[in-house]
Design a protein around this nucleic acid. Structure first.
Lengths: 218, 218
DNA sequence: TTCCAAGCGGAACGCTCGTTCCGGTTGCGA
DNA sequence: TCGCAACCGGAACGAGCGTTCCGCTTGGAA
């Protein structure tokens, strides 16, 4: 999408650049159909290239997944920016709906999205900044309960991911219903939430631990 | 827990029976600490036995996981039964809270819980029957929106599982906050949910597809 | 048109992990 | 106490998958 950035080092030959895109597209399709445990050969076959080609473009499978997730993260920021244009009381809901759609298109990579190693990334920081803004606006407009913090948004998206991944084959839109329930639950109410939220920046800690946990499992 | 059932075929020698329990306990600990991808040797080491012993008791890894999940399912039924004793407007919430706790104690096995191959199991049928009863009571008492169906409950638990698994290391109780939001969202409101629910029995279809998806990934 | 750096396919390698196998050990009925 | 069927530990095997390697092909600058 923004080839100008990658080509900084050395402009890819035209066929190579095209293959890179084919590989990324195929990978999203394969992973979303079979989960991220799908083999590289599967991705290569789908892209119509050999495994060697995949490995010349991406140093390893994790890097391939990371690139997909990075793109997804950028798209999330775009969606969030768009939601800033909506009315204050609707912006947060619009973002969550958009994020749900993006997640639905990337089933299989969602674990890497929320637990990947991009804690320090600029994109993630930007997403947080805009998300906090959307939340604050919705709260000021009286559309969302004041106890909510940004970390709650992240967790809701993460739990939505479960529905997205599991129900994808039966009703690819089912997550919308779960989201509706969550949105209702986020509205202001005299009955406050009692369990404390994650501390600020807590999502990073969650991501870090999830990665470690995975590592210790092998 | 109910050894009388398993011993129907041939009573286990005392040390063998003890080892079986040690293995199950160790497996829950290991899987919940490192995910279900943890190796059998890890489980065996934790249980203080050799891998051979694990395999004499359980034909393969899937069977070990299945036994854990079967026990978890039985515990869920117990919790659900207990919730029937609560006031009609509180029973469903009590069940969900209890189910959350059980899930928290079995992080790592939750995927197998919701996608395992026990679609036809008697326990699952019983869970559904009680769950439907809890839901109907809550609806009759005016505590829960009338559009909700049993399948929504299953999906909410499944999405809760995501929070349980991911946030476990940072705040093992954090799922309670997400559940609170969900519970608020489940309350009656003039603004009805618009996206249609899963059809009756739809959870089985979800489970079946999830299993296939996994299989095609290998 | 020529030439070669860059690219390509896919066979082969090695590591991980589930599973099997076997020689030694032990609970427990007689 | 004796004898053996059941049990035990852990080395070894094999399948699957990520990764590497190498001989052939090709885009595109000169």
């Amino acid at each position: 999408m923004t080839p100008a950035l990658e080509t900084a080092a050395a402009p890819l030959r035209r066929d190579a650049a095209a293959n890179r895109e084919r590989i990324l597209t195929a990978a999203v399709e394969v992973f979303s159909a079979s989960g991220a445990e799908a083999g590289i050969d599967e991705v290569a076959r789908r892209a119509g290239v050999g495994v060697g080609t995949v490995y010349r473009r991406f140093p390893n499978k994790d890097a391939l997944l990371a690139e997909i997730v990075a793109q997804l993260l950028r798209d999330l920021v775009t969606v969030a920016r768009g939601a800033l244009d909506a009315a204050p009381e609707a912006g947060l809901a619009a973002f969550l709906a958009g994020a749900g759609e993006l997640q639905a298109r990337h089933a299989g990579c969602l674990w890497q999205l929320w637990s990947g190693g991009h804690e320090g990334s600029e994109t993630l920081r930007e997403l947080r900044a805009i998300g906090q803004q959307l939340l604050a606006r919705a709260q000021d407009a009286g559309a969302v309960r004041s106890e909510l913090v940004y970390e709650d948004i992240g967790l809701l998206l993460w739990s939505l991911a479960g529905v997205v991944e599991s129900a994808h084959g039966v009703d690819p839109q089912l997550w919308r219903r779960t989201l509706e329930i969550m949105l209702h639950g986020m509205k202001p109410s005299p009955e406050k939430l009692t369990h404390p939220p994650l501390p600020p920046g807590g999502l990073d800690a969650v991501a870090r631990l999830a990665t470690e946990r995975r590592a210790s499992g092998r």
